[in-house]
Nucleic acid binder design. Structure first.
Length: 325
DNA sequence: ATGGTTTTTACTGCGTC
DNA sequence: GACGCGGTAAAAACCAT
């Protein structure tokens, strides 16, 4: 093989901004060093192959550096797709520094007073950063939790994102002391799910959380109050599709459920009642109306609403629709 | 802390398969 | 006799005051 076959690319080269060094000459008209035949690019495999003898010539390799050009560092930052994606789900990467307290240099010699003062200043600043980093570590753990719970609940990415944002705000406003990380993370996720109209019931969330339901609710209320989050009361209809599919009920039932809920809302019988309970009742009621009967206990199981509540609600729902008709 | 409202728990009776 | 359902009463949880 010729000297052109092996080429290593250092990371320095990849960051080079001067694109003019990248040569485009000879790229199309290479001759095989073995037999002199024509060499063609095999794009699929990232190789160049001689058409005569099949020799693979790794001329020009694969990595020619970025395909874009940048004329200043700001532009480069913009165009570069390398590096960590910036997302709220990221924390600081865990890089932090410690500065020893001994006023000695690397050889164990004492420092001059001038140097000592300098080190003092450095320590002070480093300490400030480190306390920030303790928050970052906190954040990392919380985001991990959010991630885990969200995926267990099948919540989309946007929900995780806003949950992260909420958590950051809580962290920023020093709402954490005295509260568990998991608690706040759970609360943030629950709030964000509701804000984005993909609500999960308190029970569902509590089930995948490491903290018990009571603490979860407490911290949730606390967070909402302190951050002035706008969380509209959940619309019962938003629970319907999920529950319906968990019970293997056809679309028809879903539709009826929505109608029932709509009528009930007009009637005003829904105010003050728990949205989950209403959704559960609507499902049960419409399953009767459409001859896709499910038992109360089945509905109760998947919705975590007691059968009694289902009974009470579904009667009201039926009355409301009757009155409307 | 308190009172009013809603939900849950536990239990009972009735009808049906 | 187990199961689904309806009802009741008391306890618990929730919420605003």
């Amino acid at each position: 093989m010729s000297d052109s076959t092996i080429r290593t690319y250092s990371s320095d080269q990849r960051q080079t901004e001067d694109e003019s060094t990248v040569s485009t000459t000879d790229e199309d008209v290479l001759t095989c060093p073995e037999c002199g035949g024509q060499v063609v690019d095999d794009e699929e495999h990232g190789e160049s192959v001689c058409v005569e003898c099949g020799l693979v010539v790794e001329e020009e390799g694969i990595d020619r550096g970025p395909e874009w050009r940048a004329f200043d560092s700001a532009e480069k930052d913009q165009k570069s797709r390398v590096g960590a994606p910036t997302t709220n789900m990221m924390h600081d990467k865990g890089l932090s520094t410690n500065i020893g307290w001994q006023d000695k240099d690397a050889y164990g010699n004492s420092l001059s007073s001038n140097q000592r003062q300098k080190m003092q200043r450095l320590r002070k600043w480093n300490e400030r950063f480190r306390t920030r980093n303790s928050k970052e570590r906190n954040l990392k753990q919380a985001l991990g939790e959010i991630e885990r719970m969200a995926s267990a609940l099948g919540l989309p990415k946007e929900v995780r994102e806003t949950a992260s944002v909420i958590y950051r705000r809580a962290l920023g406003e020093d709402l954490l002391p005295g509260r568990s990380i998991e608690g706040v993370a759970t609360a943030a996720l629950y709030a964000s799910a509701r804000q984005l109209n993909t609500p999960r019931s308190i029970d569902e969330v509590a089930n995948v959380s490491r903290i018990d339901a009571m603490e979860f609710k407490r911290t949730y209320r606390y967070i909402v109050r302190e951050l002035n989050l706008e969380v509209a009361p959940a619309d019962p209809a938003q629970y319907v599709p999920r529950f319906a599919s968990e019970l293997d009920l056809p679309d028809e039932v879903e539709r009826r459920s929505r109608e029932l809920l709509e009528n009930a809302q007009k009637d005003g019988v829904t105010s003050g009642k728990s949205p989950v309970g209403l959704a559960a009742a609507a499902i049960y009621a419409s399953s009767l109306l459409t001859n896709h009967k499910v038992t109360q206990s089945e509905v109760s199981d998947v919705t975590d609403v007691s059968e009694v509540t289902i009974r009470n609600r579904y009667q009201e729902l039926l009355e409301a629709t009757e009155a409307a008709a």
